[in-house]
Design a protein around this nucleic acid. Structure first.
Lengths: 243, 243
DNA sequence: CGATGGATTGAATCTAATCAAGGCGTGTGG
DNA sequence: CCACACGCCTTGATTAGATTCAATCCATCG
């Protein structure tokens, strides 16, 4: 990844959130940052740890989890390239979630004060960032719905639909396939199930010809049927859209 | 409620989020607004509807829900006095959740453009608002954990702990009691259970001497035991705190 | 006073968790 | 280079918790 390009995806995202002009885009692209690489399985942010920076996921896939004394954990979000990591850490000086690298990741770390002065100097960038956070919150609400009111089969189907959509948005995969580099246990922690049941359910989704799950990637075979099963409606992923 | 006092709680909240000076507080207090009353059961905000304003809950208790074609719904958040309602609606012109009044409510509606110009003119207020949204997001993540990884008993215990804490924060109830004006069915929709099971579980919590649930209010009898059962840790409710 | 709808309680069913065993891949050491 | 051990994925069988079904109670309202 060329050094100059690392913030392209965020700038693009914020720009589509808030319709930024070129000066505002430039301000985002010129944010000071430090590029950091993480191996798959590494911890990018530790829950509760003091923190003076925000991160931008440049390459790779990561996830956020919260836990209860290492005995139980819940994955509360997945991050694709272009996503902001741990804004809470930058804004409140302490992160509220642990962020782990699911694959090898490269992250652009942005000092909190640089972010703060950008927000103070460029209110429309702040507005775009608002939209970004609200978008994440919207996804979180849909996840509550997912684990609270859907069957195992629907939960996994919905997760597939969401990731297919988001992957397309950032240009990952070929449209019908997307990477899903999570172990069965991590999928279980994301959907509120057990790894055993995740396995059995994915097998059934395969047997029914809806998806193909191989080599840490999913190929969607019958998107219409999958969306219908999952009760998937992408509106929650498009906060900027005026419907 | 005296007209001048309606925004006191928000100003106080934002001030504690971002340490605002008196000019910034005043700017919040002087926001233009229209006071609107809603009967219990009324719809304050409709999911997907166009929307050009934010709301501040002044009195009463409300909740947010998302649904799937009226066949299934999930309550994704509870709102107490001082909470902001539907910021997403104000920022993106379309709300992503339905907000219903659980009791009679009075809401201060604030025009989106007034909010926007406040944010542009007073960056530290914008910062405080960031913290507020991130706090809501933190609660949402904890709710994912609740419905995804805890037993029925724990879910209800955790909800009680959260509401007891938040009620104290805004000066509702007497410290050990707080209003819980939700029907069994609504409690079920908030915890990802059925009304039948909610009833049976609440009875057991009562039989075990942890809580007393009468007349749309909960009295906590053994807070230590309840917190332990619920795995409750209030840190997620205190985003501003530096731990 | 009877009718209606939600709350409550108990019993049966089912989904998902837990328990248990086997397979596969990886990495290590002989 | 092969053998073995280890851990995790995978699959099947049993158990437990939550749902669904069904009946009754209670409050509200006409």
């Amino acid at each position: 990844m060329v050094e100059d390009k690392v913030l392209d995806l965020v700038a693009q995202r914020l720009s589509s959130n808030g319709d930024l002009n070129s000066a505002e885009c430039a301000a985002v692209l010129e944010l000071p940052r430090v590029i950091v690489s993480y191996d798959a399985g590494a911890c990018i942010v530790q829950e509760g740890a003091p923190c003076m920076q925000a991160g931008v996921l440049v390459e790779g896939i990561a996830f956020s989890e919260i836990g209860w004394q290492h005995t139980r954990r819940q994955i509360v979000g997945l991050h694709l390239p272009g996503d902001l990591l741990d804004l809470r850490g930058a804004v409140t000086s302490a992160s509220g979630e642990t962020i782990m690298a699911a694959t090898d990741c490269t992250v652009a770390a942005i000092p909190a004060d640089a972010l703060t002065s950008l927000l103070h100097g460029k209110p429309r960038v702040a507005h775009a960032l608002f939209v970004e956070i609200l978008s994440e919150a919207s996804i979180a609400r849909e996840w509550i719905m997912n684990v609270g009111r859907r069957s195992a089969r629907q939960r996994l189907a919905h997760l597939c639909c969401e990731l297919a959509w988001r992957s397309r948005e950032v240009g990952i995969g070929d449209g019908q396939s997307f990477p899903l580099p999570l172990t069965p246990e991590q999928l279980a922690d994301a959907t509120g199930l057990t790894s055993v049941h995740v396995n059995q359910t994915l097998r059934k989704l395969e047997a029914d010809g809806l998806i193909l799950y191989r080599d840490a990637a999913v190929r969607i075979l019958d998107e219409g049927a999958l969306r219908k099963e999952a009760e998937f409606d992408e509106l929650y992923l498009c906060p900027g859209a005026t419907h």
